[in-house]
Write a protein that binds this DNA or RNA. Structure first.
Lengths: 193, 193
DNA sequence: AGGCTTATTAACCAAATAGTTAACCACAAA
DNA sequence: TTTGTGGTTAACTATTTGGTTAATAAGCCT
């Protein structure tokens, strides 16, 4: 990796922390430059402007979530393995990249114009939904609405990253990791009967 | 209601839309003034500064959520009635005050210093948790962890307001109201067995 | 080394934005 | 009618902030 790439990565890392922490309008280009240990003009040299830099960060973070959804939508994987693998992927994101999921949901809501593509093109669960429907028709999967199952799966997977502080306050726990750790088994217990 | 109160309410309403839509740092005091049909200096006359105005809005929105949680935590209500009443309250908030729940969760995450009190003091489910525990001990409620039940309840209740766009994209639905309408029955089916 | 391109910086600029001020207005009390 | 108080405004100020520029440093190729 040459020096240019290294610099760009320093900037991207700094931008990521700032944007994830503060959101688009709360983020300051000066803060990003400071955090990267670099002159502010360098951001513009390498990335054009604040918006393009934000898009770059958003694009990279989106991939994390897309990878998780790709597990659900993969052709080769049998249904019973998908749920725990998916929940593990979400848990990994939420613990290793805290702020990523709230950041993405916030961007989807407040800055959809910065998304690289329409949401429907970024996330697709067509294969997964067909798989569930087949499973339901054959009685392997309980219930009769794939979409409902998907929503419940999302609910269980996303609630902690998205409302961790509230949960911690309501349950008196210090932090949310307990529930994140239980996530795969919970999802199995709830959805795989 | 005298003219002063009317003006303050106009400003608060405008501030609410702007803050819910744009977040604290994205909101512009000029936009609030314009929307209220009022001079910008009047915001400062009545509310001091942007931050105090934000706190006022935040405080009022918090009450909506507190009221919903108060249902769960109320002494007089039997457990079976709490779940549907709570989910109806959340649904009502999410449909009549769109943006409120994402706004609150975002504020909790990004501007906790503007909360009127610590989260634990704002939201308490002690009575509810005790009630669940008793029910579990007597076999009236399935499961053995009140906190887990609470988290699942939150998950089902909050997922649509918080990730409605994502859900709409994944399920191909136009909007999220379908799932919000099903919410009370879903929660009963899932949690009240 | 010498010259050419790329990377980096200090200083600066213009626009946006929160906040202030002084004057003005409405209306009620004297 | 005068006068004083609280509400409202136009115009202004200070600061923040994203972005630019011109000069400088660092590689790199011959």
């Amino acid at each position: 990796m040459d020096k240019t790439q290294k610099t760009q990565q320093k900037i991207l890392r700094a931008a990521r922390t700032e944007f994830l922490d503060q959101g688009f309008s709360g983020a300051r280009t000066q803060a990003i430059a400071d955090r990267a240990g670099v002159n502010k003009a360098l951001l513009h040299y390498h990335f054009g402007n604040k918006e393009q830099l934000f898009r770059k960060v958003l694009e990279r973070e989106l991939i994390r979530l897309q990878d998780a959804f790709a597990i659900l939508n993969s052709e080769g994987l049998p249904y019973p393995k998908k749920l725990p693998q998916f929940s593990s992927a979400i848990r990994r994101i939420a613990t290793r990249e805290p702020g990523c999921i709230p950041f993405l949901l916030q961007a989807i809501r407040q800055q959809p114009q910065h998304l690289p593509q329409p949401l429907e093109d970024l996330f697709s669960l067509d294969q997964f939904r067909a798989q569930i429907r087949a499973g339901m028709d054959h009685g392997f999967i309980a219930g009769n609405s794939p979409d409902t199952l998907i929503v419940h799966l999302l609910a269980l997977a996303l609630i902690v990253p998205v409302a961790g502080e509230l949960i911690a306050a309501l349950t008196g726990q210090k932090g949310p990791p307990q529930f994140l750790d239980q996530l795969p088994e919970q999802i199995n217990a709830w959805l795989a009967h």
